[in-house]
Amino acid sequence: MMGHLILRVTIKILFAPIILFALYVQFHGDYGPGGGFQAGVIFAVAFILHVLGFGLEETKKVLPPKVLPWLMAMGVLFYAGTGLLTLFLGGNYLDYDVIQPTSHHHAGQHIGILLVEFGVGLAVASTMLTIFYHFAGRVPEISDEDW
């Protein structure tokens, strides 16, 4: 236990800033470099780090794997749903302008892209975590002695 102490403390300190950074990248993606893909990965990294320090079981308590498919689905739905929303508002698919048709500053574009990026971020993060959970939780088919 003691051997991991420094790592664990460090991870505990870094955990929140990483997620904060993920959010920064997420929302910065609107105009600058960044966006949902990168943010999602960074977000997932925080949890991956947690697994490395505390073990899979601990992290699964924090973020149960059962939730992940729902998050994935929600992510995609945010993206696709935004498109659908614009469709129902009378525009083309993903035509954000119709969200705020009266705006002179293209507010609709801002809102739309934020929604879509959020969906992307959510989906990417949860997918990354799913993959990681599967890899990390995989029981080797051939035990070490048999090699």
Partner: peptide, 27 residues
């Protein structure tokens, strides 16, 4: 105001419909 999408969206629909349907399936 809600518009119900009509034939003008037809080219995109075959792609959009399964795309939206997919996330529902996984859960």
């Amino acid at each position: 105001m809600i518009h119900f999408p009509g034939l003008e969206h037809l080219p995109a629909l075959p792609v959009i419909i399964p795309l939206i349907a997919a996330p529902f399936t996984i859960v």
